[in-house]
Design a protein around this nucleic acid. Structure first.
Lengths: 186, 186
DNA sequence: CCGCTATCGAACATTGTATTTGTTATATTA
DNA sequence: TAATATAACAAATACAATGTTCGATAGCGG
């Protein structure tokens, strides 16, 4: 990739994070980003169609580390050992901890919704596969249960990051399974 | 209140709901509302400072029925009998069922966030009081638990309405407590 | 070194918000 | 029912932000 493109991509992303320390997502204008990143107007629009597309790209960056397929080939699509899912969750929390500062910005404003929406996408299949290895009873409708398991994970994440990640990733994972396992084995 | 004011208030609210059947919240412009409601521009701004303020007002309308203080004086601030909270929840689902159509519109677009935010406000104290009548163990941090109980209620509501309220209010309430009671008495 | 292309920046069209102003219509109350 | 208050209205306007276009310039890779 052309160095120039790379440079502006980085400049824009960095500017975005910088601005997020000071302003709320919806208050940040494209112009703000251009000024902060020292990038021409038309250049920005050659890279991203809208401000929202930029945010999606940034989320994708984050998730590409979190849900990296290559790093954990053996723990995918095999939940015969229930611990695999536990490992993935812990792994996720570790990565979120690394991106703590950026995430605090994103989750502290309207951008939260987009982040959550994207995260839901990634967790969807994953949780679905998991739940039906563990879940035996037919107390709940399938999708209600899956929705609750996903939602609980997401909301716990939000709570954790909002509170500045005081607990360790392992501790948070413990909390998570303490919240959902009683339901799965009701 | 002046009949004229009442009339425009109703016209605006009704126009809003009508538009929500066709468009997403963020796609609805003030102009759309003016046209649909047959109301002058300046008139609108004499009633609401912004479109968002209108939405808050509409949410307040809905919640005023749901969390009506006068209707249930005996079941407030007394959770010595745990069933009181159960009744409030069922009562809530009943009202949401009545407002089903409107809620589907609101929850089906960006307006969801504002609705949820407002609902959180109403549920906050209520759930807090409830949880610590029931909860005995010190497995979770207080606010984590409260957050989870509130969130689960909200997300279950969203799931239910999105799915067109196929279950009865009582049924949904059952699901809710089946989701949270195992956690509270872990 | 040459050709390709990314960047620049200014201008522009567009859309939407919110305010202001003066006029008209409709309530309330005396 | 007449007088007073005030709500509704239309039109004009300021303003803020988005997204597009275009010709010139500078930097990259082969």
């Amino acid at each position: 990739m052309d160095r120039r493109q790379l440079k502006t991509q980085q400049a824009i992303r960095q500017a975005f994070f910088e601005l997020m320390k000071r302003k709320t997502y919806s208050k940040i204008t494209v112009q703000d980003i251009l000024d902060e990143a020292n990038v021409g107007r038309s250049t920005f629009y050659e890279h991203f169609r809208t401000k929202e597309e930029l945010l999606h790209a940034i989320c994708a960056d984050i998730f590409s580390h979190v849900f990296c397929p290559s790093l954990e080939p053996e723990m995918r699509h095999d939940f015969s050992n229930t611990n695999d899912f536990r490992h993935i969750v812990i792994h996720m929390f570790y990565h979120f901890y690394e991106d703590k500062e950026e995430l605090k910005g994103i989750l502290g404003s309207e951008s939260k919704e987009i982040f959550v929406q994207d995260l839901r996408g990634y967790l969807g299949e994953l949780v679905y596969d998991y739940v039906f290895k563990v879940y035996k009873n037919a107390v709940f409708p399938e999708d209600l249960l899956v929705n609750h398991i996903i939602t609980s994970l997401i909301e716990l994440t939000l709570w954790w990051i909002k509170g500045d990640c005081k607990e360790t990733p392992e501790q948070i994972a413990e909390y998570y399974f303490a919240l959902i396992l009683p339901v799965l084995s009701a």
